[in-house]
Design a protein around this nucleic acid. Structure first.
Lengths: 158, 158
DNA sequence: CTATCTGAGTCCATTTTTCATACCCAAACT
DNA sequence: AGTTTGGGTATGAAAAATGGACTCAGATAG
């Protein structure tokens, strides 16, 4: 104690362990390739099992398992519907919790457009009046952050 | 051709196929649980193989494979360093392309704080002067979007 | 009333990843 | 010369993904 512990040189390790990190929890919850692609489908308004199966080429068993996990987590909910002359079925739609993932997906899309090869995306995310939607990083005082390299990660004492 | 094809009833399917979707490409590139957790480490300033291994509990072979993929994609780069009296090694740091993922990760963190159980996160992402950073969805005209449910996905004609 | 069609899944055998542990290597220090 | 240490490979066992066949229930046709 009277020792002057030389002090940790730099942050060799993350400032916060996984168990206390909200970002890590989000990744655990939805950070899986198929799950993210399913959320893209949901954001695009696709509700049906077979439509997702067709769009994604995902194995049916994997799709069923992921959908029920997303329902269990409250990100999707089953919405029964019936087409005229067809029997009742249920589709999957985003809950409010699920919709709240939109900023993250929009940010990913922007990153891809700016930094990945493959040409411009044909997918547009916009308001009903046709204005495209983008994300911005801002400080709590409302000012826009120009450069993400200004960001540092620290641990809140706890 | 003279047939009046009845017209597709609604968007059962996504407006854009995966191959032409920037969001899908991003998911292919980094949408994997371990990869996202590695990016979290990088964002936290963790550079070294062993530090990441300790923090994440990831198998060494998986970590090695993911790191080299991220380097190949230009998201991380190897930065050789040498501590006094130690041999030269290389760490991994975000490139500019990698840093550009920050908004997506911040958005995920916000979602987690707002909607997942687990208590407040101890991880803070802030500017050097201590202001916390958050994301906002905005229209191209600059106005802030209050509710993500206003968003619709459509295909750009192509 | 029986047959058939369809959307929405489940089941199952095979292949692919992941996992955990052990092992390896090169530099630096003893 | 021998030991330590960060940074990886190699390897067999366990888990997950894959793709195809199978199931089920209700609507409609015959």
């Amino acid at each position: 104690m009277t020792d002057h512990v030389p002090k940790i040189v730099s942050s060799r390790h993350a400032p916060v362990p996984l168990a206390e990190c909200a970002l890590a929890r989000a990744i655990r919850s939805i950070g899986d390739g198929w799950t993210l692609l399913i959320l893209r489908e949901a954001l695009c308004g696709v509700e049906r099992f077979d439509a997702m199966h067709d769009d994604l080429g995902i194995p049916r068993s994997v799709l069923a398992e992921r959908l029920s996990k997303l329902v269990a987590e409250g990100i999707l909910e089953q919405r029964p519907y019936r087409e005229p002359g067809r029997r009742q079925r249920n589709g999957y739609v985003l809950t409010e919790k699920g919709r709240a993932l939109t900023p993250a997906l929009v940010a990913l899309r922007e990153w891809s457009e700016a930094h990945l090869p493959g040409g411009p995306s044909r997918l547009r995310l916009q308001t009903p009046d046709g204005q495209e939607v983008v994300t911005r990083l801002i400080r709590v005082d409302g000012s826009v952050l120009a450069d993400p390299s200004e960001i540092v990660a620290i641990a809140k004492p706890g």
